[in-house]
Nucleic acid binder design. Structure first.
Length: 266
DNA sequence: CTGTAGACTTGTGCTA
DNA sequence: AAACCACAAGTCTACA
């Protein structure tokens, strides 16, 4: 699940549940998810403190640590995962890899079935993004910068949208959705797209991400005109029923409509 | 720079 | 039925 809209939802969830509550205990149940930090260090940084705010950049959530040395807790979910706030330790969710217990008796769990996720510490979201080489967040990037950054690239449209160094937050599912709605073939070299198409791509990206976040918050399904519900074996284009085609790009399965996403390379 | 393939990890669903 | 293989919403490294 965890592409930008999902992670934005986790940020909202963390904000709604876990801010301004004193942390009493920290437990790491799968050490492999720790990145550049030890359980002992996490304990000393978090115990007795509280989170004061939460932010997101791309697919990362950051929680500001109030008091002490300050700093930020960083979380990335990999291909699976979510946050869960619960009261009874006996109700701890399956696959909880990292647990924060608050003085009020509640817990916040970093749930991560496949263990591709990571927990780290950073001085700031900006410093972390810089160190990782992440591009601007896909929800914040303006039309101009979007056009410039894509214009500098020679790769295919989908691979470029998913490249976290170009812009951060788009993954396999939403790359397909954005390209479908913009009518762009996933292999179109981005440097061949004209200004108008780049503008469309940028606008569609914003629409898709905002729509997805709103849908998550209300636990709604996606609009029927979206590709997402049809993105499976035997799926057809929601516009006219054309069977969707699949190809592999960057090792990820790619679904697209051969009639509405013309191949510009010919 | 680009694209591809393989690793990492765990669960699920298909095949037989 | 149990077991096996392919595959899944991510990212990193090695290599052509």
């Amino acid at each position: 699940m965890p592409e930008l809209p999902d992670v934005e939802y986790y940020r909202i969830y963390l904000t709604a549940t876990a801010l301004h509550k004193t942390i009493a205990r920290v437990e790491v149940r799968a050490p492999r998810i720790l990145e550049g930090v030890t359980e002992r260090r996490l304990r000393s940084v978090l115990a007795g403190r509280a989170f004061q705010s939460a932010r997101r950049h791309g697919k990362y959530v950051f929680a500001a640590i109030e008091g002490g040395e300050g700093g930020w807790l960083v979380m990335h979910f990999g291909m699976t995962g979510r946050l869960s706030y619960f009261k009874d330790i006996g109700d701890d969710p399956k696959h909880d890899r990292f647990l924060i217990g608050f003085e009020n008796g509640y817990f916040l769990a970093f749930v991560n079935q496949r263990k591709f996720g990571h927990v780290a510490l950073a001085m700031s979201p900006e410093a972390f993004a810089e160190a990782k080489g992440l591009g601007p967040d896909a929800l914040s990037i303006g039309r101009e910068e979007f056009a410039v950054r894509l214009g500098e690239r020679r790769g295919g449209a989908k691979a470029t949208l998913m490249n976290q160094k170009v812009l951060a937050g788009i993954g396999n599912i939403y790359a397909d959705e954005i390209l479908f709605r913009a009518g762009v073939h996933p292999k179109t070299p981005v440097n061949t797209l004209d200004e108008e198409t780049l503008g469309t791509l940028h606008a569609v990206m914003g629409d898709v991400l905002h729509t997805a976040i709103a849908a998550k918050r209300r636990c709604e399904d996606f609009p029927g005109s979206y590709l997402l519900p049809h993105r499976h074996e035997g799926g057809v284009c929601p516009l006219d029923g054309t069977p969707l085609e699949t190809i592999t790009i960057s090792g990820r399965r790619t679904y697209f409509c051969p009639t509405h996403q013309s191949d510009e390379r010919e």
